[in-house]
């Protein structure tokens, strides 16, 4: 198993922490993991993105040009990364604020209305976990238990009371994710 993922959106959407939870969870399952953020000028005022690789074997380059999965949270990122998904790969995006939708026909495209769903919850900060839930529904490469453990590991103790809320968000994401084509 080798899953190469790009998660991209605006700073503040929880892009980096979503990647971190994935990486922690992968580690719980004894996978090799890498988490490579964009940092610096790119992050300030532009898109924030993180490359996460989960693999059964040693990971070579933590920075990639093409991906098995792109999780896209804004228009700029969609414009940039749609063409970077490997043929047959997966593109998951939130339609909120998207006016130019993906056009490729050689990849699987899914939508998760995470921003709309988060608005129904106690806090919209659950947004990224709804997206992550959608991804895990499509690619159940990590046990749900390990995701819970990953959450515990990556969240500071003072936020542990929010874990049930996050799990609720993950489950909502799993329910609302839907295919655009195929």
């Amino acid at each position: 198993m080798n899953e190469e993922i790009i998660i991209a959106g605006f700073g503040g959407q929880g892009v980096l922490s979503m990647g971190k939870i994935l990486a922690y969870s992968g580690m719980m399952q004894n996978m090799e993991v890498s988490w490579m953020p964009s940092y610096g000028p790119e992050m300030r005022g532009g898109t924030a993105n993180v490359t996460v690789i989960l693999s059964d074997s040693r990971i070579s380059s933590p920075i990639l040009n093409v991906y098995d999965t792109a999780i896209i949270l804004n228009q700029q990122s969609l414009d940039k990364f749609e063409e970077k998904v490997k043929p047959g790969g997966l593109l998951l995006y939130d339609t909120n604020g998207i006016t130019r939708h993906p056009k490729r026909t050689d990849i699987k495209i899914y939508q998760v209305e995470a921003a709309a769903e988060a608005a129904k919850m106690a806090t919209t900060k659950t947004f990224n976990m709804i997206v992550l839930g959608g991804y895990l529904k499509l690619k159940p490469i990590i046990d749900f238990e390990d995701i819970k453990n990953g959450l515990k590991k990556s969240l500071p103790k003072r936020h542990h009371h929010l874990i049930p809320l996050n799990i609720d968000a993950l489950e909502r994401g799993m329910k609302i994710v839907k295919a655009l084509n195929n």
Binding site: K20, A23, E32, S34, W35, M36, P37, I59
Partner: peptide
């Protein structure tokens, strides 16, 4: 360098 410094791995 900044790449190895900023990335997370096991």
């Amino acid at each position: 360098d900044g790449m190895i410094g900023q990335m997370m791995e096991k």
